[in-house]
Amino acid sequence: MGRPVRVIRIVQPVILVVLPAIMLLWAWLKLPSAALVTSVCACAGLVPFFVGFEKSRRRARDLMPVVILTALAVAGRLVFAPVPAIKPIIALVVMGGLCFGREEGFMVGALAMLVSNVFFGQGPWTPWQMFSMGLVGYLAGVLGSHGWLVRRWSVAVFGAAMALLYGFILDTWTFVGFVSNANAANVLTTYATGLATNAASAIGTVAFLLPIAHSWPRIFGRIKERYLT
């Protein structure tokens, strides 16, 4: 592993914190062109992860868990398209980060949103969706590597929290980018409108995670032992 990869690995968590902070600062100071700036920020936030993945020179085999989990997440979003808000994506992204590591988790999240938006329509939301879903996978990887996500309920609670975080970031982006004079009434209205969707998404994530929280890490452990060591 070369030096640039190590530098990129240090940059990654920093950028995950700095970018949402820039977004909030922009709204706080009421600077102009918030929609453009926040979108560019989200794109910039994806760079260290994609480049880090590129530079780490993984074997073709090691890419396959990410590919399969991403494909399953996209297929899940397609199958669940008629049901509003309840999607298995977050559950699968959490599993990806938990079982295969933080960078893999980020890639599952980011790629799942990128590819599924080919079917659902690319839009100004794509970069932020990729960034926030990637953040979910990254956090799952961090907590997983510290051994905090072993029990079924802790995984489920974490999944629900991540569903809420994902909704929170996207709602925040909505009013930072597209609402002038963000005051209490505006902000509350935005979050209140998103609340039903986010709550449903959190409940759905728990329902998907509970049955797989124990069995999937075992299955993946076996696959890792057999093929990926």
Binding site: R59, M64, V67, A75, G76, P211, I212, S215
Partner: peptide, 28 residues
């Protein structure tokens, strides 16, 4: 429905991993 969905997803993950690792090997 949820049980069936989860079982199907588990089957798919197992199948997909084995299949795609074969693809990866033949690529290498």
């Amino acid at each position: 429905k949820l049980q069936r969905g989860v079982r199907t997803a588990t089957v798919l993950v197992g199948l997909g991993m084995e299949d795609s690792i074969q693809t990866a090997d033949s690529m290498s």
